[in-house]
Computed example of a mutant assay.
Amino acid sequence: MNALPIVSIRPEPGLSATVAGGAAEGFEIIGAPLFAIRPLVWELPDVEQFDGLLIGSANAIRHGGALINQCRHLPVYAVGKATAELAIECGFHVALVGEGGLQNVLDSLAGERLHLLRITGVEHRPLSVPPSITLTERIAYTSEALPMPGELAGELAKGGIIMLHSGAAAQHFVKECNRLGVNRKLLYIAALAPRIAEAAGDGWAGRHCAAAPNEAALLELVGQLCHDLREG
């Protein structure tokens, strides 16, 4: 049994995967999506000029629409196992699976002469591009923030552990806590990465980040928090 409610606010379908991951580790995660991913209209440049696709989220594959299907002959340079697996399921060849963000992927390609197409969302991190690489960006989807339900605010009245997967999620959650009068001093933050924990700011019962920027490490952190709170 959880010492406190554990809540994930990430959008679907990642939310369901997180809930299932928690169940596999022996704890219950409440799924309360405060975001919905929406596709946008975008234009595809001449695809023949590119040497590959740079993909930082499965949402690029999932919401890229008909245009991304025209890029199936291009190798995919992806971040994360889940993104790579979805790309393969959709008929793409994955040339590289990186960890820790797109910057690490680009850094690993330094010295290679490549023209890459980055398909991303409205909220995305700027990249430092090595001199040998040319990068073209297209925005194919957006993450729409949703209001926190009153039921969730009530669930957190006595405390909880909040899983945060992005800086935008952290900032939106803070805003909704302030709007609904949720006492942040009773909540523990479990963030995927240090920058996400920083985006949440101060004023929490505890603020922690995963040992590595991946789902397995985040679930491990949540499990450790549950153990520590029970013991404490």
Rank of each mutant, 00 (worst) to 15 (best):
A3Y: 12
A3E: 10
L4P: 01
S8I: 01
S8E: 01
R10N: 01
E12T: 04
P13T: 00
P13Q: 11
L15T: 02
A17G: 02
E25P: 02
I30S: 12
P33D: 02
F35K: 00
W42D: 00
E43S: 14
L44I: 07
P45H: 11
D46A: 15
V47H: 08
L53Y: 04
L54C: 07
I55L: 15
A58T: 02
R62S: 06
R62Y: 04
H63L: 15
Q70C: 11
C71G: 04
C71E: 02
R72Y: 10
R72K: 15
R72L: 08
L74M: 07
L74Q: 07
Y77C: 10
A82G: 05
T83W: 03
T83E: 09
A87R: 00
I88K: 13
I88D: 00
E99L: 12
L102M: 14
V105A: 08
V105E: 07
L106C: 05
A110F: 11
R113G: 05
R118M: 12
E123P: 03
H124D: 07
P126N: 08
P126F: 14
P126A: 09
P131F: 12
S132I: 06
L135V: 06
S143I: 03
E144C: 04
E155S: 07
I161D: 04
Q171V: 13
K175D: 11
L187D: 02
Y188C: 06
A190I: 07
A193H: 14
A197M: 14
A200W: 09
A200Q: 10
W204D: 01
A210E: 00
A212P: 03
E215A: 11
V222M: 05
H227S: 14
D228C: 05
D228Y: 11
G232R: 14
